[in-house]
Simulated scan of single mutants.
Amino acid sequence: MTADQTMPSAGDALFDVPTPIEEMLRLAVDFTRHNDALDIALRAKNSTPDTAHSSSARDLAADVLKVLRAIHNQRLHPSEDLTRAHLRLRQLAFLAEASADHPPGAARELTALATKTVMDNALIVAEQTLNAQSKTLHSEGSGLTAAHKSALVEIARGHVVANSTLGREYTRSSGSKVPMSTLRRLEAKHLVTRTSGTALPAYYGGPLQDRVQLTPAGITALAAALTRPAAVRTAPRVAGVPLASPSQATARSR
Rank of each mutant, 00 (worst) to 15 (best):
I40H: 08
I40V: 14
A41P: 01
A41Y: 02
R43P: 03
K45Q: 14
K45R: 10
T48M: 12
H53L: 11
S56I: 07
S56A: 06
R58H: 06
D59A: 11
A62N: 11
V64T: 04
L65M: 07
L65V: 04
K66L: 00
V67F: 13
L68T: 14
Q74F: 15
R75F: 14
R75V: 05
L76W: 12
L76A: 04
E80T: 05
E80K: 09
L82P: 03
L82R: 07
T83K: 03
T83L: 02
A85D: 11
R88E: 07
Q91K: 12
L92N: 13
L95I: 04
A96C: 02
E97W: 14
E97K: 13
A98E: 06
A98M: 04
S99G: 11
S99I: 01
A100P: 07
H102M: 12
P103W: 02
G105L: 09
G105A: 10
A106Q: 15
A106Y: 15
A106K: 14
E109M: 11
L110I: 15
A112K: 15
A112H: 07
T115C: 05
K116V: 01
T117Y: 10
T117C: 03
V118L: 02
D120W: 00
D120C: 01
L123M: 08
V125A: 06
V125T: 12
Q128G: 00
L130C: 02
L130I: 12
L130S: 06
N131C: 04
Q133P: 00
Q133I: 00
S134K: 04
T136P: 11
T136N: 07
S139A: 10
S139C: 09
E140C: 01
E140H: 15
G143A: 06
L144F: 15
T145D: 03
A146L: 08
H148L: 01
S150T: 09
A151V: 06
L152I: 11
V153S: 10
I155A: 05
A156E: 02
R157A: 03
G158R: 11
